[in-house]
Each structure stands twice: as C-alpha cells, then as structure tokens.
Nucleic acid binder design. Structure first.
Length: 261
DNA sequence: CTGGGGAGGGGGCCC
DNA sequence: GGGGCCCCCTCCCCA
C-alpha cells in the first residue's frame, strides 16, 4: 500500500506519542478538529504546515517526491497535536542521501561572502572544513569514508551494513527470534510479533476517526484513511486517472494503460 | 480490472 | 548496543 502520504507525528524524539494510550482499543476519540464536520472529510490542511500538505497535488509514478502525500494521524487521540515535525528530516537521511556523489564532497566551500576567509574544503559527510585539500583528504581517509564504507557483511546473505548494529538488526530477519506462542510463526522484530498476535486476539487498537472501522495495524489504518479522501493522490500520467494507492496505480499501468512506455 | 483490507518485512532514528 | 517505534513498501486476497 502506498504509505508515502504519511508524515511523522511528533516534533522530536523527546516528545513521543503516548503509545500506551494508543494501545487501548477504545481510546480513540473523535478529535476536536472534526467536531461539526460532516464525515467523511479527510483533508485538514489547516492543521498541517503548508509545506507538509498539498491537498490538490496529484502524483504520478514519475513525479513522486519522497513523501508525496503527507497526511496526518494526529487526529487520533494519543498522538501529539504538533505537526511541524522538525524530526521528519530523518526520513530523508536515508534513501534520499546524496552521499554517493564523491565529487560533491570535494567541492571547495566558500565560507565568507566577502572573501575574508578563503575557500575551504568541506567534507560532504560531516561538514568539517579544512583549509587544504590534503587536510580534507586525510580526514576522509581516517574518518568519514571509513565510516561510510559498508564494512559489515551478513553471513546469511550478501548484504553489507555500515554499522554492526545495523547488521545485527538485519541478521534478525534471518534468525527470526520472535516466535508466536500460539501458532509458532517467527518474526524478526518484537513489534512484528505483537502485530501478528493481534490477528489471534482480534484486537484492533487503531480506529478510524471517520467511520467505525478499526485496524490491528497502524499502517493499514493510514491506508484506510486514504479511502476517505476525496482527492486520489496517485495519477496515471497517461490517462490521468487517479488512485488512492501507488500500488493501484502501478497495477493500472501494468494492466496496459501505459503500454506506450 | 479496480478498490480496499490484512498481514508482514526492512531500514532508520531516538532513547 | 538494544529495544521500541516510525515510515515505507509489498504481497495476497476478496468483493
């Protein structure tokens, strides 16, 4: 399901949502911002930062930004109301990282507009500046490049990671240490197991504020919220038909609409 | 074929 | 360093 319409919901890590509240199946109250609003009405641009929400934007598979469809789940009680999430930058630190451009790291840095301070050589990875290229080179060789280089290899597959912690996390996907006591199914993460256990218990802690539906999985609630939206976010670049999910758009395109491509 | 729900996986970030 | 959590993503199934 397309989940890229999601945005982070808490300003920073120091103020995380009260998940204990979320875990309660009955704690979801209609948020105040919906009071008086006829349902279903999804977009609440007024509660979102302008940069985070563009209700009329329709994305195609070729024009998708990293987070093309910001929506918000803060209406669900238990989530903080703040939306100007400065920590959202973390979402862009991974896949969007331009770190692969080695040349970029070598670009001289003009640090003073008046030329008082001459050009500096700045490390593209940690932003440290050096007055000489050789200084930068030494820094890169000793620190950043070494850290950036993937040097931890998985013994079960060919994947490599930049840190031992990341590798260990990955290895869990092979060892599957979290086992369901009910059916014996194994998972890599405890929270995956928790979600699975809900399929046994029938617990559905995540309720839709617009209808009576409830979900065991937060991601599925987000996907469901899209169905309440008037604006279908994903548009076929050929026939301009729009879809609520990227996967539906993909299926549509693969079904022959975009054979011209 | 489309729309939607259910279930699960992976990497990253923060504490 | 590990745990918890988030976001993103995919696949499957069904109406």
């Amino acid at each position: 399901m397309p989940r890229s319409f999601l945005v982070k919901k808490h300003i920073n890590s120091a103020k995380k949502p009260n998940y204990s509240e979320l875990e309660s199946p009955t704690v979801f109250l209609t948020p105040h911002i919906y009071k008086g609003l006829p349902l279903p009405v999804i977009p609440q641009p007024e509660i979102l930062s302008p940069a985070a929400y563009s209700p009329i934007t329709v994305w195609t598979t070729s024009s998708l930004p990293l987070s093309p469809l910001p929506s918000d789940l803060s209406p669900i009680s238990g989530y903080p109301s703040s939306l100007s999430d400065s920590s959202s930058s973390k979402d862009h630190s991974g896949s969007e990282s331009p770190r692969s451009d080695e040349d970029e790291q070598m670009l001289p840095k003009l640090t003073d507009p008046h030329g008082v301070e001459a050009e500096k050589f700045q490390c593209g990875l940690c932003a440290k500046s050096y007055s000489t290229y050789s200084g930068l080179l030494k820094h890169k060789q000793l620190h950043c490049d070494a850290q950036t280089r993937k040097s931890f290899s998985c013994k079960y597959c060919e994947k490599e990671y930049v840190s031992l912690g990341a590798l260990k996390m990955h290895i869990r996907t092979h060892t599957l240490p979290c086992v369901c006591k009910i059916c014996g199914k194994a998972f890599s993460r405890p929270w995956l197991l928790q979600g699975h256990i809900r399929t046994h218990t029938g617990e559905k802690p995540f309720s839709c504020p617009h209808c009576n539906r409830a979900f065991a999985d937060r991601s599925n609630l987000r996907a469901h919220l899209q169905t309440h939206s008037d604006v279908k976010k994903y548009q076929c670049k050929n026939c301009s038909k729009t879809f609520s999910r990227m996967s539906l758009l993909h299926k549509h395109e693969e079904s022959g609409c975009c054979v011209a491509h």
